[in-house]
Each structure stands twice: as C-alpha cells, then as structure tokens.
Amino acid sequence: MSALLAARGIGHRYQGVLALNDIELDVPKGTFMAILGPNGAGKSTLAQILAGAIRPAKGQILLEGADVTARAGRQGLIRNGVALIPEGRRLFGQLTVDENLMLGAYGQPRAVREARLEKVYALMPEAVRQGKHRAAVTLSGGEQQMLVVGRALMAEPRAILIDEPSLGLAPILTAKVYDLLSGLRRGGVTVVVFEQLATHALRHADSIVVINQGEISFRGGVDDEATHEALRTGYLGH
C-alpha cells in the first residue's frame, strides 16, 4: 500500500508558539486513519498543512510521492483531490444548502456540478434534501456536519481530511457522520479524521496516530493494548 499523502519533517509555529515539531507521517491510500490527541496538540495545524491550506514553516508535503509543498497556502490541494473539512465546519451560513454544495465543485462545468449534486444529495439526510433553498445556518448541528461532508464530496476527492467531526454533536449524530465516512472509505476514498474524542475513531479507523504537544507520540492498530496505553498517557498523564 503506497502513501497517498505524506509529511516529511513538518514543523510549524504560530507567532512563536510551537504547534508542530518534526512530524513524519504516511497516510496509506484507501485507508481510514485517526489522528488523536488532546486539544492544543497540533491536530488542526497538521490537518491544514496536510491539505495544503497553510504552508509549513519546515518540511515537505508529498502527494503520491511528489513534493506539493510549494502549492500550499492558497487554495490548498483541493484541485489535486485532497479535501479539508476544517474545525468548526465553516459552512457558508448565509448561503443556501444548494449554494454551499455547488461551491464544493467550484470551477467545474455546470453539467458536472449538477450531476454531482444529485449524487451527493442521495447521501444527505432527509432534512438537508428537503431544505435545498434554506440558509445553511438554519440546519441543525448534525445536518450541518453532514452538509459540510457533502460540500467536500462535491469535489470528488481522493482523500478527505476532517477536523473534529464530533465537536458539539451528540454521540448519535457523530455516529451517523462516522458511518458516512466509513462508507466513503469502502468506496475507495482515503479518510483521515483528527479527533480529540477517541470513541468513534477507535471504532471506525484502520490505524491510529497519537499526537501530543506537537509531536507524534504513538502509531499503531486499533485494538492493540499499546494503543490504549498510549492514549491514556497522552490524555491523562502517567
């Protein structure tokens, strides 16, 4: 299994604040990877760097082995098939559901966008389908999270990076989002979740990476005893 996305020696600071230090990471093609860690560990920064949304201070991002670091900082890697769903969802609240989804395929010909729109609506919950012309802000939290996944799918990405999908959602809604992500993974999409809450991620992911204080402290399988020990140390100390 070759790596779709890889980080090589990634380091980053925000105004002097250490965010990431020497991150080495391979995301294998077609897998479901969970990057776990407490808040402030550097997960969001890593998500944005891997998706090319911000340029790392140090290191390289490889997409199928090719160095794409130079492309980072503007529109990211969305045109290369890497979609980012940022923390807090960042839907366009004042725009309609339809407009939000259409923007996911921004730059594609109208026919392509409309064809994709139909496919994506099929994956959306009833309330989203019924509310095509409602402002996105009027949807519930769970519907908004589904919609933002839909917006990413409109780009027909090879990889989806999703930051804290469980944030602010009741467990039952989080489960629905994860079911959708697992379905995508079965369809061949590479999925990477960046999570603070380990529950759902442990249930759906193929592999786990624990990140703490800007560094990777553990990598392993889901059911390993070592994974649980690593999580416990990472979150609650010794």
Partner: peptide
C-alpha cells in the same frame, strides 16, 4: 462570509 472556507473549497 468566510475567507478561509472559501479558499479551501478552491
């Protein structure tokens, strides 16, 4: 509405 979100959808 959101410069960053607009950027990442391309």
């Amino acid at each position: 509405e959101d410069h960053f979100a607009a950027r990442i959808v391309g």
